Simulated assay, not measured.
Amino acid sequence: MIVIKRVLNNNAVVATDEQNQTLVALGSGIAFHQKAGRAILENKIEKSFYPKNEDAANSISETLAQVDPKYIELSDRIISEAVISSGKKLSDDIYVSLPDHLQFAVERLKKGMLIQNKLTVETMQTYPDEFQLGKHTLSYLAQETGLTFPDDEATNIAMHLITAEEGDILENTEETITLINQFLKVISAMLKKEFNLNSVSYYRLVTHLKFFVQRIKKRQHQEFPPDKTLYDLIIRDYHAEYLIAQRIAGIVMKKFNYRVSDDEILFLTIHIHRVNAVQ
């Protein structure tokens, strides 16, 4: 049985479960005409999560209590779309951070406070799906408020989604985007060509770089010694691309003191070759 400890708004409560553990429960109208001490039907709960400790529970409670329920509902819709499109489980923090951000974004725009995001172009190129979800969110907000939001705000929303996908913190998300785009600029400059952003090869390269950067930052070596014959063949036939992969490995060593393994270099070389082969 789930028992309410505190009503945050019509769509959110802090409660306890059968083991007397504290949880946050979300659901449309879940707390309508409810109060502390009453039980709630589990089929009314659309999403629940367990804060790490009592301090975290209090922090979440205070934040959600100050958020208009419409932003919680909108966030839940966007989060569901993000889960479906990415196939990834998002961290529970997004259920608090996103509605809080959306409400603040509306308040800022009403006051004429525009906050620029210098990574908008990079985010559009590196995380196009999340950026489009950010744009969809702004469309919903525009219908609700009559306000016109800049693309930079779509970037801010995308970063919350990316952070939740990767279980990271926002500052690390910004660093990841910056690093991926540094690599893309190196590849473009050394190949002396512009990327076809709509090509499958470009999408595969960016996806590979995302996981590559994650492994670097988590210092997870993926060491599968490549077949020497294959490795020598790749170096010979894709020599220009191999030199680019080596340049990227040098950047990684200098910035993170992380040695990029031979197999990482091999796969990176292949992805660079694929994008180079696109006319």
Rank of each mutant, 00 (worst) to 15 (best):
Y238E: 11
L26W: 02
Q182C: 13
V3T: 14
V278L: 00
E46V: 03
Y258Q: 05
M124T: 03
H208A: 14
E18V: 02
N117H: 06
E122R: 06
D237P: 00
T178C: 05
I40V: 06
S85T: 08
K193Y: 11
P99S: 00
V213F: 09
Q279Y: 12
Y50K: 12
T16Q: 02
H101K: 11
S75H: 06
F267A: 11
L26D: 01
T173L: 05
G37H: 04
I169Y: 10
Q132P: 00
K218Y: 12
I115E: 14
F256G: 09
E130D: 13
Q279P: 10
T269C: 09
R204M: 15
I157E: 01
D232P: 12
V7H: 04
G250D: 11
A39M: 07
A277Q: 13
R247V: 15
N11K: 06
E107M: 12
T126N: 11
F224A: 14
E81I: 05
A158E: 00
S75Q: 07
N20W: 09
A189F: 12
D263V: 13
L233N: 12
A82V: 02
A36S: 14
L119S: 11
P128K: 04
I115G: 04
Y238K: 12
I2K: 03
F149C: 07
L133K: 02
A164V: 01
K111Y: 11
R274A: 14
E241Y: 10
I72P: 12
Q103E: 14
Y50P: 00
A56E: 12
I94L: 03
I40A: 02
V252T: 05
S188A: 15
I2L: 03
I72V: 15
A25E: 00
S86L: 06
R236M: 06
T123S: 04
A245K: 02
E130S: 14
Q214V: 11
K254Q: 13
P69L: 08
H160R: 15
K47P: 08
T148D: 15
H208T: 13
R219S: 10
E241V: 05
S91P: 06
G29Q: 05
G112V: 03
E107V: 10
N172K: 12
E165W: 05
R108S: 05
I162G: 05
L74G: 06
M113I: 07
F49G: 02
L205F: 14
P150Y: 02
G134P: 04
R6P: 13
I270C: 08
T16K: 02
A56R: 03
A12Y: 06
Y231W: 01
E130C: 10
E166S: 08
S201I: 00
G27Q: 07
R236T: 09
T137V: 00
L147I: 03
T16W: 00
L230R: 13
